[in-house]
């Protein structure tokens, strides 16, 4: 069962790197913007309230500083995870010559291990098992969702009058 909604294999690695990086940057901007805003002190003075009610004290500069320093790092982490996963996915597809739910699970296992390699063998092993299980859950949920969605269009035996089936 080949997946034709994605691009063919060598080039899809670039796409996955960029897509995951973009997702991480945009999500990290929202996340660290809110976090930096909430963590900064708000010194309410009367002229500031009069000038602009929604920018208080150090909150705007705190949010911008948090976004500047943190959002690219979140994006980099997402991007390297997605890209390394895609590299392993393509390699496993090339070796096994078939596409089934075990490809992403194996690729997730390898990705978790490779990215945690500098923490030592134990850390890499635990991270690999965690990522493999996570991907297995994703794949299982995906299969369950698709079978649930296709239940509505399942072919049904027509209700014949007298209960005589076709071509008895």
């Amino acid at each position: 069962m080949a997946d034709h909604t994605r691009d063919p294999c060598p080039i899809v690695i670039v796409n996955d790197f960029g897509g995951a990086f973009s997702m991480g940057v945009i999500g990290g901007t929202i996340w660290h913007g809110i976090k930096g805003f909430r963590n900064s002190p708000s010194q309410l003075t009367l002229p500031e309230i009069a000038n602009c009610a929604f920018i208080q004290g150090e909150r705007r500069s705190g949010a911008i500083a948090a976004i500047r320093s943190r959002a690219p790092v979140v994006g980099g982490n997402f991007g390297s995870w997605g890209g390394v996963f895609s590299i392993f996915d393509c390699a496993i597809k090339g070796i096994r010559r078939k596409e089934d739910p075990f490809n992403p699970i194996l690729a997730g296992f390898c990705t978790g291990g490779a990215l945690a390699m500098r923490g030592g063998f134990k850390h890499a092993r635990n991270s690999a098992i965690t990522c493999g299980c996570l991907l297995a859950v994703f794949e299982g949920v995906g299969i369950a969702m698709s079978s649930y969605m296709s239940r509505a269009s399942k072919p049904q035996l027509p209700d014949m009058e007298g209960g005589v089936p076709l071509a008895a």
Partner: peptide, 14 residues
């Protein structure tokens, strides 16, 4: 454009 552009730049920079 977004995915391939940022992917190319990110990988190249890396």
């Amino acid at each position: 454009d977004l995915c391939y552009g940022s992917g190319t730049m990110y990988m190249g920079g890396l």
